[in-house]
Design a protein around this nucleic acid. Structure first.
Length: 216
DNA sequence: CACCAGGCAAGTA
DNA sequence: TACTTGCATGGT
């Protein structure tokens, strides 16, 4: 089992190559993207980020100073705009209250502690918290999503319906704690999922990891 | 037309 | 604990 996940990574990387995921200009942009992308395609998130940039408000202080309805209007292209405006606000409240609005200070916090704090923010669940830790803070925390579970289940590496933390632990106990690796691996799993592992039509025959030896 | 996209909170049982 | 639903839009 320890080796299976490494083998899958190699196959995915050979097949798809590097994904250049989360090309945000700043860590703050990545965090905003992590909240806006919830249940939303990345293309629409980019439109929302672009509108924030053109309004020149894509920084913690500027965003914090916006009225809620103005913020909602700016993030409208990403969908769920009223909800997401609130969620951004909740995060900013936390950031300013606990870390004085200073992201670098926040990232200096121990990742386990920061993770707990992020999960207390309304609108930030496990996947978003881990995305922030990995993609914005560059901490070696593995991000699990629906594709990750589905792909592993299809290859009989896990059972259907296992919890987020079980899957996360599996990755983190099998791989060295390397943020660069976790970053690429998660992105590759999403890529594979979109290509071959949709719910409606499983195409595991053509899947590049289809022939991985499955052990228990 | 149905279904999905890089989820989460709140309500219910 | 484990489901269910609202949240809103744009692409395929």
């Amino acid at each position: 089992m320890r080796k299976v996940l490494k083998e899958i990574y190699k196959k995915l990387y050979r097949h798809f190559g590097p994904q250049h995921w989360w090309p945000g200009d700043t860590p703050f942009e990545v965090i905003v993207g992590a909240i806006l992308t919830q249940n939303t395609s990345w293309a629409n998130v980019e439109k929302a980020i672009a509108s924030l940039k053109s309004a020149r408000v894509l920084s913690p202080g500027k965003l914090y100073a916006l009225k809620s309805n103005r913020l909602a209007a700016l993030v409208r292209p990403s969908g769920f705009y009223n909800l997401k405006a609130k969620r951004l606000r909740h995060f900013l409240n936390f950031l300013f209250k606990v870390y004085g609005g200073d992201l670098r200070r926040m990232f200096r916090q121990k990742s386990a502690k920061l993770r707990e704090e992020l999960l207390l923010v309304k609108g930030i669940g496990p996947e978003t918290a881990d995305s922030i830790l990995l993609y914005a803070a560059n901490k070696p925390i593995f991000v699990v999503d629906a594709y990750t579970k589905r792909i592993l289940a299809r290859h009989a590496i896990i059972k259907e319906g296992v919890g987020y933390y079980e899957v996360q632990r599996l990755f983190m106990e099998s791989l060295k704690p390397n943020a660069r690796l976790y970053n690429e691996y998660h992105a590759l799993l999403v890529k594979l999922g979109k290509t071959f592992c949709k719910r409606a039509k499983p195409l595991c025959g053509e899947c590049p990891i289809g022939k991985v030896k499955r052990q228990k």
